[in-house]
Design a protein around this nucleic acid. Structure first.
Lengths: 251, 251
DNA sequence: GGTCGGGAGTGTTCTAGAACACTGGAGTTC
DNA sequence: GAACTCCAGTGTTCTAGAACACTCCCGACC
């Protein structure tokens, strides 16, 4: 396990991200209530000691998160609480590899602090290159490596997790019982890719072998992202199956 | 350079919008194929006669539209038409990418009788090496090949289907209106594999590119298997997404 | 009373750079 | 081989300022 950072990587947090974070804080903290008009952009820029363009970049981030709305000629406003459309069917989640009578083991490969890549920090709503804890685990079915799972936790959660005995305690149990965090929903994306060299070695495949890559963001009850998982599963060891039932489809 | 000194030559359309539009044209027109790397930002800026910052604004627009992807240190790439496949939306086939306002076309590559391989005949509950009809179609999203679909029909159904105009009539419509067969359920399996040479050529990829392979058996109201589909989708053009909601799971 | 014009206040577009950070490959070392 | 170092090419962040465009309101004028 590497245990350190690839290359030098300064860990410098862009200014516009910190400004976005500061404003996000004020909004979430209630200091800036929904509907409030923010100070004008030039004023904000001045108060953050930054150029107008830079400030605008921060606002852009917040606008994309639907936290604010900018209106030409009028001002910038704190948006109302976002509405989410989870009228979707509730779905039970069976662990990562719902074992059908197979013997499933998890081997902890290691955990280390690192700097999150863009997808990770975006998903966890952290500034680019923020420090995160990476937990790497290998799932074995019947003793054979099945998937490589890399979990990324924000530093403030990771610090606590690192003190737990991950080798014997599932991560979600650590989250729940040590930190009181319960995962309530998640969003997952599965794509097909080639295995990189490192992943292939851990999984015992040739580099470049076709594989599934699943990326999942899990959220707690407050809709805050808690953990980002990236799972690699060689294509010859796994299949996704579904049963489809065509109902009287209206529209 | 400035072009705005006397009067409003520019009118109302911001320059970065026009640049975005120009690039959008080139992408949709096929001049810039998916996967292509664009000229670097400084070069693009120069060629449009604008500043780097302005050009970047245009790229931001396109990125938000998922038309391009910028990769730090690597370049800016034309994104493949990538479709999110929500696994919860059961009404939607992998084959039926009638997704999100995209223009979806189907090109009939051909249909021919053949001898079914073992998976096909097993799925259709036919004797090994039974005669089947193979229908091959290419699905295009926005004019770009998205998936290659091979459908296998038992001979007794296939004979009738072959007389229909598959080029203009969807297969399931032929089944329903000419044969009175309505698909009621299906079972699908998705795996990750490498594209073979023929598949790659039809899809415009390199042989060996990672891809999804979906195999689906569809059943009619009497639970009789009607059609076996095998769909190939290059890994860079497709993703499966799911939203998970964890219920009060006592475990 | 209605409406027209202007001005104050706000967000938006754009310039011309400079410095920084990330990636992948080539070369080097062990 | 495997791992490390360096570097060219590429995207990213930021500055300091100028000019433009939209909204609203108020006062002048019909």
């Amino acid at each position: 396990m590497n245990g350190r950072l690839n290359g030098k990587v300064n860990g410098r947090v862009p200014r516009y991200h910190r400004i976005a974070e500061a404003l996000r804080e004020r909004i979430r903290g209630g200091e800036l209530a929904p509907g409030t008009r923010l100070p004008n952009q030039r004023g904000l820029a001045r108060s953050f000691g930054v150029t107008l363009m830079t400030l605008r970049q921060a606002l852009e981030v917040l606008e994309r998160e639907q936290l604010i709305a900018r209106r030409h000629g009028l001002g910038t406003f704190v948006a109302g609480p976002s509405i989410d459309y989870d009228i979707l069917q509730l779905q039970r989640f069976a662990g990562d590899l719902s074992a059908k009578g197979e013997r499933v083991d998890t081997r902890l490969l290691g955990s280390r602090p690192a700097l999150g890549d863009r997808r990770v920090t975006d998903a966890l709503r952290l500034p680019p290159r923020a420090r995160v804890l990476v937990v790497e685990r290998l799932r074995l079915v019947d003793g054979h490596p099945m998937s490589l799972q890399r979990s990324f936790l924000p530093a403030h959660i990771g610090d606590e997790v690192m003190r737990a005995d991950l080798a014997s305690t599932p991560l979600h149990q650590v989250l729940e019982f040590k930190l009181g965090i319960v995962i309530e929903r998640a969003s997952e994306t599965v794509s097909a890719m080639r295995l990189g060299r490192r992943e292939a070695r851990e999984l015992g495949c040739r580099a470049g072998a076709p594989a599934f890559e699943s990326e999942r963001v899990s959220f707690d009850a407050t809709r805050a992202p808690v953990v980002f998982d990236r799972v690699f599963i060689p294509g010859d060891r796994f299949r996704i199956t579904r049963e489809l039932v065509y109902q009287e489809v209206s529209a």
